[in-house]
Each structure stands twice: as structure tokens, then as C-alpha cells.
Design a binder for these strands. Structure first.
Lengths: 355, 355
DNA sequence: TTGTAAGCGTTATCAA
DNA sequence: TTGATAACGCTTACAA
């Protein structure tokens, strides 16, 4: 009598297991149908007779049955889980809204979001690689170009679809959703030039960074077009965060001949930069005009309010996620690169040059 | 010849499947051992002969084998995944650091973090409930008391361990890591009282909110101890975010007789409040002293810099996560409530009352 | 120390 | 439309 033997085994097993969970077989028994029918009633409601379906659903409700996800995943081979990789420097005021866009889009589609925060511990990259190669992940979103790799293997080698957000990745062929960094930075710069500023500072992002390269190219193009000479330009290093904005501000204060207009490539830096030079006795925008880049909420609450490039942060996340969903469904995509537009938000921190 | 039949099946299956993944059997064959030995060599390295272990590991490296997580999970019954539930209002500048604390602690222990952001779509709560009841989650962290529930079932009913962070949950018996809200708010209030302020405003959090209740109790206790009368106090409503700080600031400006000291129960609100009343012509701290609550980075870069309660944000996250790890290991815990201490950070936004 | 083989709970194939 | 049954890939008694 095999079923008696099974029952005994189950009881023996019950101790170590988390809870006496209800399995599909329990529902089947309660509804007087086979497990196959229960499965069908839940997955393809119209492939079973209405009365059977109702009996099954009643049993499901009655018993509080939820299909075991590991078993389903093992069987069908997909986890409905997306890994979101964010770099070690992750600039919360900016990315929070990008992440919200991702979360809204993926939630709607019934996908779970696994956080792959790089730089939170030693073996994190190896761990993420194992996660992906272990089949736990159906697709990944790489923020700011962050692609986990370990011993020469990247998550891309697993063959799962990946979409970059905010930056292209190092790996060729991976689609990305980015903002028109170069044009935005030209806009920042042109705004200052149009206000008569002929002596500019540029507060940079990390060297080699994708966004930094694009933005710097835009800056260079614009100042060249305006006929500024190398002497009219100062480059100050930074890495997008508050602390580097302070450093840049101090470097600015130490300059012998100070520019009147400053192009800053992140809002965090711009805010810290402004605070620092104001503590150094300069007035913004009377002495120095500052234009930021990002459009974080905070820019409205500093003194003076920050003129900046507003990035479509939510949309960067949501369109990236939707592209990934498309890829995971096996659909092709038209363009490898999706470019969204930023826009200049004119507020108080930039004004006409003093004469 | 059963193996021939199997091979045919596998080839047929190959098309729909993601990739021709390497399975434990492939490694076993390459190393000339059984699958059991491969499994042991990976999980209990010292239970196999050194030479076997080396042969196995070589094959693993050679083939790039990673165990399938769904199969392992199905077998052992745990997912090594923790759900982090954050409420709809999630106040990124504050929580980002709490989340980092969580991530660092859980990463170290080899756990994955699944983001359960409430308020990002219709069926999100049902989805999270299914995730938990589907066995996909080993434990959960509830930020600010957010416990997903659906049709009368909460994630707690599944029996997984849960720890609250930043607030106790509605469900009795669930342990939590909180800050000493009441004492912190007394400290805020006392600081203003000691500077001679006898007419105070209190900018509140959402009514009924755990932190709001505690902080308001602290405020009340302190003003009562100082002998202030109901007329000496104004309550302004808020919900911890920037926008409500603006509203509170406008309400403040509209008062006939304005308090000289303001206790604000979040930094976001405090920053927006300050910006708003300054635009209304008031000077901080000369006309009005403001004390915030949270200790977000930003407070250093506004004008004037924000005097505030600094919460141990990273530690709130990491100790909560460590408690959960303990619970998931089946260990008991001594106290249901772990209370961390906040501290007053004296900066520029609060000063002696004008006489 | 190692191998054999029985599940873990689903879903999908095939037959009825 | 429904039911029996064979995988999915792994871990772990139990036997050798």
C-alpha cells in the first residue's frame, strides 16, 4: 500500500520542514480531481469545465493553497525575478526615483526585483554571478553600467537578457536607456554662455565614467563653439557625490582668478559646491552662477534654488524595465540605444554675469 | 537502453530552454564520480577524499557549473532570500542608509534581498503574500511597520520570521529594532526650551503613525515638564516628506502669533519648512529656531545647516537584519524590542530666543 | 568514503 | 475535458 508508506514519510519529514504546507495534491483531493486539473484550473482557467474550475478554486481558497515557487520554477525554468544591479557609488537621491520606475513597471508585469547592490561586502560579485548562473534570474538591469563579473565571467555570459539604464555597459550589444548627456551638458553650458559668462569651471564626474565622458564632450563642444580658449576654462574633479562637491568648492575658492559660471555634472555636487563657496564668502548667483545636472527634489529647497538639468528619472527606470520585459518575452527590439531627453529647469542659482 | 532515450529527450527539450546548462550529472561524469559525491564535495568539502574533491572542483571549474537554485531550494526547503518591505511613503534620503545596513548584513550571510515596495501597483500586496506563501521567502524585514496583507492573511501568518525596523508592527509578538523616538523628541524639545524658547510649534508625522505617536508623546512630556500651556504650542500637520514641510511652513507663516522654536519630526520636512519660512521673510535661527529629526546628509548643505537628531540609520538596518538571521537560524532572541539611541547634532538652525 | 535511489511539488505530455 | 505519469536538478538516507 504505497500511499500509507508515503504518509509515514511525510509525517517524519514534517519536523524539519518550515510548516505543514498545503500541496497541490491536497487541493486535488479536496476538490475530487487530479493534480493536473488543479494546475490547469489555476494556469489556464478556460481549459477546464466551469464547474470543475469552481470546485478547484473553492478548495484553493478553503485550504489557502499557494503553489510552491521552487517547484514551479524547477519545472518551467523561469523565476520571474529580475536582478537590478546598482554600482558601489549609488547616489540615492538620484537613483531612488529610477528604482521606483523600475519597480512599478516590473511589479505590474508580475516580476520580483532582487537588489544587486555592488560594494556591500566581499564576495558580492561572485554571489551575483552564482545567482544568475544558478538559474535564479530571468533578466537584469544594469544601472550606470554596473555589470557584475567574477573570474572572467560576467552575468552577460549566462545568456540572460540585460538592459543598461543611465549608461551603456562595457559589453557590446547590450541595449541601454540613457539620457542625452551630451546635449544636456551643452544646454547647461550654453545657458551660462548666453548669460554672458566667458570664464567657466566644469565640475567633473569620475574619470572614464560613461556619463562623464559624454557630458564633458558636450561641454567641450559648446565652449569651442563659443570660441572660449583653454585659459577660460577650469576643470575641477569630482565623483557625483556631496563630498566631492565640497572638495571642488574648496578648490574653486583657492583659484587665483575665479570663473563666473560653473557647470556641475550632478546635483549633489552642485548643492555641496554652492554651500561651500557661499561659506567662502561668494554669492550665488551674483558672484558665481551654478548649473547642476539631475533634477533631484532637493534642488528646490536649497538657497538659492538650483538651476539644473532635469532628467526623466522615473522614465529611465520604467522604460528600461519595459525593454527588458520585451526581451524576456523573446521579442526583438528596434534600437539598441533608447535616448530620453533632459530639460533645463531655470531657477535661481544662475544669472547674468556681473559687469 | 534508458540513457539513450534520455539523451533524445534532452535534445528535444533543448530548444525551448534558456541554455544548455551544465547539470550536476555532467560534472559527475567529467570527474568520474557520482552526483552525490559532487554534491558533497561542494557542500561538505571535508566529507570527501582530498583527491576526489580536487577532481570534482576541477570539473566544476572546467565546465563552469553552478548548482541550480530552484532544484536545491525545492529539495532543502529554504531559499536564502529575505523580503524587505518598505511602505508606500518611503522617504529615500532617510531609508537609503537603512537599506544599505540591511544589504551589507544580509549579503555577508549569503542572503538575497527581494524588494517589496508597497504602493507600486495594484496587486502588489497579493503578489507579496503569494511570494511568501509560495515558499520563496525565508524571512522578512518590515520597515516602518509595513506588513503586506491580502484577504485577511498577512505575511506573518505564513510562519516565516519577521523583524520590524524603525517601527513596531501591528502584529503582536514580532520583534523590532527602533530608535528611542520619545527620548529623542524630548531632546529636541528640551534643546529649544533651554535656549529660552517658550512658544513652540510641532510639525507632526502622519496621524496614527508609530513614530509620530512616540515622538509626539515625547514632545508633550517635555513641554509639560517645562510648564508650557496649551496656548504656547501649535501643532502643524505633516507626513515626513518635503511637500508637507512646505505646507507646514505656509501654515506657520499664516499664524497670527508665531512660535519662536519649531520641533520638526523629519529632516525632509525641516528642510522644506526652513526654505518656506525664509522665503516668507523670516530668518533662521534669528527669528525662528528649527530642530529636525533623522540626520540625513543633506542637512549639512542647506542654509543654515540643520540642527537635528541623528538616527543610527545604518545600524537600524544592520541590527535588524542580524536579528532576522538569528531567527532564521532558529535561535531564540532575548528581547522583543531593541532600542538604539539617536543623538542631537547641534548646527546652525537653532539658537537662543530673541529678546 | 562513495554510490544508489528516493523524493522535493510542479507542469506538460500522452492517453483515455 | 480529465487523469496518470514522467521529468525538472538537486540533496540525503541508506547501503555498500
Amino acid at each position: 500500500m504505497p500511499s500509507a508508506k508515503k504518509t509515514i514519510k511525510r509525517i517524519q519529514k514534517r519536523v524539519p520542514r518550515k510548516a505543514a504546507n498545503i500541496r497541490i495534491g491536497d487541493v486535488a483531493r479536496a476538490a475530487g480531481v487530479s493534480t493536473a486539473t488543479v494546475s490547469r484550473a489555476l494556469t489556464f482557467p478556460d481549459r477546464v469545465l466551469e464547474q470543475t474550475r469552481e470546485r478547484v478554486l473553492a478548495a484553493v481558497r478553503e485550504l489557502g493553497y499557494t503553489p510552491n515557487s521552487a517547484a514551479r520554477q524547477l519545472r518551467v525554468g523561469t523565476s520571474r525575478t529580475v536582478l537590478v544591479v546598482v554600482g558601489a557609488r549609488h547616489n540615492p537621491p538620484f537613483f531612488s526615483e529610477v528604482l521606483r520606475g523600475i519597480d512599478v513597471a516590473l511589479s505590474q508585469a508580475g516580476y520580483a526585483v532582487l537588489m544587486g547592490n555592488l560594494g556591500s561586502g566581499e564576495g558580492k560579485e561572485k554571489y551575483l554571478i552564482d545567482l544568475v548562473f544558478g538559474g535564479h534570474i530571468d533578466g537584469a538591469l544594469a544601472l550606470s553600467g554596473a555589470i557584475p563579473s567574477h573570474e572572467g565571467r560576467t552575468i552577460a555570459d549566462s545568456g540572460i537578457p540585460i538592459v543598461g539604464i543611465c549608461a551603456e555597459t562595457d559589453i557590446v550589444g547590450i541595449p541601454a536607456v540613457v539620457v542625452d548627456d551630451e546635449i544636456c551638458c551643452r544646454t547647461q553650458t550654453r545657458y551660462l554662455l548666453e548669460m554672458g559668462h566667458r570664464h567657466l569651471a566644469y565640475v567633473a564626474g569620475p574619470r572614464g565614467n560613461y556619463n562623464e565622458c559624454r557630458r564633458h564632450a558636450g561641454f567641450q563642444a559648446e565652449v569651442a563653439a563659443a570660441g572660449l580658449k583653454p585659459d577660460d576654462i577650469v576643470r575641477l574633479e569630482g565623483n557625483y557625490d556631496f563630498a566631492s562637491g565640497v572638495t571642488a568648492g574648496e578648490a574653486f575658492l583657492a583659484l587665483e582668478r575665479r570663473p563666473t559660471g560653473v557647470v556641475v555634472t550632478s546635483d549633489e555636487m552642485a548643492i555641496a559646491f554652492m554651500a561651500t563657496i557661499r561659506r567662502g564668502g561668494l554669492k550665488v548667483p551674483q558672484d558665481v552662477s551654478v548649473v547642476g545636472f539631475d533634477g533631484i527634489e532637493l534642488g528646490d529647497f536649497v538657497e538659492p534654488t538650483l538651476t539644473t538639468i532635469r532628467q526623466p528619472r522615473f522614465e529611465l527606470g520604467s522604460t528600461g524595465a519595459n525593454l527588458l520585459l520585451q526581451l524576456m518575452r523573446g521579442e526583438a527590439m528596434e534600437n539598441r540605444l533608447t535616448v530620453l531627453n533632459g530639460a533645463l529647469d531655470k531657477r535661481e542659482s544662475a544669472g547674468p554675469v556681473k559687469r
